[in-house]
């Protein structure tokens, strides 16, 4: 590996340590998952991942994550907009608490949401009166995933909105655009890459989420059983091969998402000019 080392010392030491530590802590476990899958052989692998119960879990995990990320994209843009453009009482508190899902342990979020949405809970009882059951259904999973993903969108969109120059809006308005047209044709195209990036980050997180979901999900096979839970279930039955086959699909999806997110960030950087 060649480098323009210049006069600064420590290149070999720090890069060597980085690669060694990365390999030991992250790449080795990932390699173990792929290695175990290769031992399985193609036929057995397909058998496991095409099992109807596994397919139902994939559909649920990816579907709920997609829906949750979409909700987060809309409300994340709204929250970022309100935080950047308007002033209102309690704004600093709202801004600080947006990151709560990053800081709050997922198990705590899980039991708190369950307490709220269970049939005898604060909101659950009221929603039951409307004929809506949230906890222990796929809807509960959606609620947990929306909670987990919201800071990703807000924190990606917020800096882009902050740096947006009012000149563009003024120009559009002086050319006769109404406020909605300015938003639709000037502001939205500018923040769209950030919104899509936030959406992808929220989606990536939601697909693999475990702690906040299992308490509220009810975990019924074919109905509300997410993929990570299925993996743990296989492990508890000492079926490492089955667990690994199911996990490999998730791992490949993670890699793909990581590449998509990188490409999105590059797009956002180009579109935004100087912003991320």
């Amino acid at each position: 590996m060649s480098a323009h080392t210049g006069v600064l010392p420590g290149f070999r030491l720090t890069l060597g340590y980085t690669i060694l530590y990365l390999s030991l802590i992250v790449l080795l476990p990932v390699a173990a998952v792929f290695g175990k899958t290769l031992e399985l052989g193609w036929g057995e692998f397909v058998d496991v991942v095409s099992n109807p119960r596994v397919l139902a879990a994939y559909r649920l995990s990816f579907g709920a994550a997609l829906a949750a990320a979409a909700i987060d994209a809309v409300f994340g843009l709204l929250l970022a907009w309100v935080l950047v453009r308007y002033s209102f009482p309690g704004k600093r508190l709202v801004d600080a608490l947006i990151d709560l899902p990053f800081a709050l342990p997922t198990a705590v979020a899980g039991i708190a949401l369950t307490a709220l949405y269970a049939p005898n809970g604060w909101l659950g009882g009221w929603l039951a009166g409307l004929g809506l059951k949230v906890a222990f259904t796929p809807l509960g999973i959606l609620v947990a995933l929306v909670f987990i993903g919201i800071p990703f969108v807000v924190r990606t969109v917020q800096p882009v909105l902050e740096e947006f120059e009012p000149e563009f809006e003024e120009a559009a308005a002086s050319l006769g655009a109404c406020r909605w047209q300015v938003f639709r044709h000037v502001i939205l195209p500018h923040v769209l890459p950030a919104v899509v990036t936030g959406f992808a980050l929220a989606f990536a997180r939601a697909v693999g989420e475990y702690g906040s979901v299992i308490f509220i999900a009810g975990n019924l096979p074919f109905v509300s059983e997410i993929v990570p839970l299925l993996i743990i279930g296989q492990l508890e039955q000492y079926d490492e091969a089955g667990a690994t086959a199911i996990a490999t699909v998730m791992l490949v999806a993670s890699f793909a998402l990581l590449l998509v997110i990188n490409a999105l960030q590059a797009w956002a950087a180009r579109r935004g000019g100087k912003e991320q």
């Binding site: 992250v26 080795l28 998952v33 990536a204 997180r205 993929v227 990570p228 996990a247 993670s254 890699f255």
Partner: peptide
């Protein structure tokens, strides 16, 4: 990108990797 990997892997899959090791 590789440094970011633990952000996008499901924690359960990460745990599974350790079980397999």
């Amino acid at each position: 990108t590789l440094i970011d990997l633990p952000f996008s892997i499901s924690p359960v899959v990460a745990g599974l990797g350790l079980v397999l090791l």
